[in-house]
């Protein structure tokens, strides 16, 4: 456990060093936030009836920008790990007396958390002051958002480790890594808040793991989801995290066996 904490810290430290990336990221996120807000605003001409009001949609979009670094838009935030698996050098990791899956979880958590931590506050401040973003309706909603965002972070990290592990299978892994970003973007709420989708589609998407990464936490902040839903949301995230970690561990076992059999 101490080792994992150390890995996490080192990774955080390394990621926090990329300040140019952080500044540019903030500017980019603000620009695209403005674009998306303008586009959605175009759909709300004169009091059209929709499950979300324009200020709610606006806030939702800005959350998406502030926490963009945490969304599953990129399945490989840690290119090194992917390369390690692809060129077989991961075999040397086997020599270390550590549980690889936990090690990679720690690394991934850090590489998702660090850029988010650097960027979220400036975007939220600017958007709240100048671009129509609203703060959570009350303290309980904020707390519900905070807890479910932590849940989302863990869920996303588990998912990313799973994606990295698919890279043991070059062909299938490549196919997956091309299909997944689109699927994740569409079903997580990253493209369109799930509440705005037709009900039958929305119900399906809400069950998928991706909704727990984006839409569910945002809904607490925006106020479209009652705080009493928190146990269900956390349960959904936890359940999927568990399933994904179990799947990941199975893949890891098989991948390593494959590696040692073919001799990497």
């Amino acid at each position: 456990m101490r080792l994992l904490w150390l890995v996490f810290q080192m990774r955080m430290k390394r990621q926090l060093a990329y300040q140019t990336a952080a500044y540019a990221g903030i500017v980019t996120q603000i620009v695209f936030g403005l674009v998306l807000v303008a586009i959605f605003a175009a759909f709300y001409p004169n009091g059209i009836k929709a499950p979300m009001t324009l200020p709610q949609v606006t806030t939702y979009i800005w959350l998406g920008q502030a926490f963009f670094a945490m969304t599953p838009y990129s399945v490989f935030p840690d290119a090194e790990l992917r390369e390690q698996i692809r060129d077989g050098s991961v075999a040397t990791e086997l020599l270390r007396p550590v549980d690889l899956h936990s090690l990679w979880m720690a690394r991934t958590l850090a590489s998702k958390l660090a850029p988010t931590a650097l960027r979220c506050l400036p975007v939220i401040v600017v958007a709240t002051l100048f671009a129509g973003m609203h703060l959570p309706p009350d303290i309980p909603s904020f707390l519900a958002w905070l807890l479910s965002t932590i849940g989302a972070l863990v869920l996303i990290s588990a998912f990313i480790v799973l994606m990295i592990l698919t890279q043991f299978w070059t062909v299938a892994g490549d196919g997956l890594s091309r299909a997944v970003p689109g699927i994740a973007a569409a079903t997580s709420g990253q493209l369109v808040p799930l509440a705005l989708l037709p009900d039958n589609i929305r119900v399906v998407f809400e069950w998928l793991p991706f909704a727990g990464m984006v839409d569910k936490p945002y809904a607490f902040w925006v106020g479209t989801r009652p705080v009493s839903d928190l146990p269900f949301v956390l349960g959904h995230q936890l359940l999927w995290t568990g399933v994904i970690i179990v799947a990941g561990r199975m893949l890891l076992g098989r991948g390593l066996r494959r590696l040692t059999v073919t001799g990497g």
Binding site: K13, L16, A17, Q19, A22, L118
Partner: peptide
């Protein structure tokens, strides 16, 4: 060569 984090480089 640049070393350090955002706050201290």
């Amino acid at each position: 060569k640049t070393v350090g984090t955002v706050f201290n480089r």
